[in-house]
């Protein structure tokens, strides 16, 4: 039996009827068409489905859509503003931190969460923050450099999620 849930994704309210066995990642991608959130392993190992749920990055493949009822979700689509790309998105492009792009949305959201809680992380802290996001192309170095280039500039990063 479907349940009616309402949730806010990227500051927009959605009301959707979902089956209990619908995951949040499937709701976001298939019901709402926000395909920036990727699905990789679907077992909570790869982090490509990362979204920010009530201010905390989580694997959306391990959250039921019904559990997101009444909560705030930020996906990668919510990073860009009218002023343009988020500084992290911009840094990822400039540093060549994107190759195939599959991990990118998760990396960006984990990095955003890190910088909101710790404006000046050291390299270890950056690597730890993205340790739940697997990248099979870049070897991580350029991603770490991209995040590092934005650290200390949180005032330019826009509001909290």
């Amino acid at each position: 039996m479907k349940t009616l849930i309402s949730l806010i994704i990227n500051d927009k309210e959605y009301e959707v009827a979902v089956e209990p066995n619908r995951t949040l990642s499937d709701l976001i991608r298939y019901d709402l068409g926000l395909t920036g959130t990727k699905k990789g392993c679907e077992m909570g190992e790869c982090g490509s489905c990362t979204v920010i749920l009530d201010g905390k990055p989580v694997n959306s493949c391990l959250v039921l859509a019904v559990q997101a009822d009444g909560r705030y979700v930020k996906t990668v689509e919510g990073l860009e503003t009218e002023e343009g790309l988020h500084p992290l998105q911009d840094a990822f492009i400039r540093h060549g931190a994107i190759q195939c792009g599959f991990c990118t949305s998760g990396m960006l959201l984990s990095a955003k969460n890190l910088l909101e809680n710790n404006a000046n992380p050291d390299e270890t802290e950056i690597r730890r923050a993205i340790s739940g996001n697997l990248c099979r192309c870049t070897g991580y170095q350029k991603i770490v450099e991209a995040i590092d280039s934005v650290s200390g500039r949180t005032e330019k990063m826009g509001g909290k999620s």
Partner: peptide
């Protein structure tokens, strides 16, 4: 335990 993403759940 797990990863930062797992620890939040």
């Amino acid at each position: 335990l797990g990863s930062p993403l797992i620890r939040n759940l």
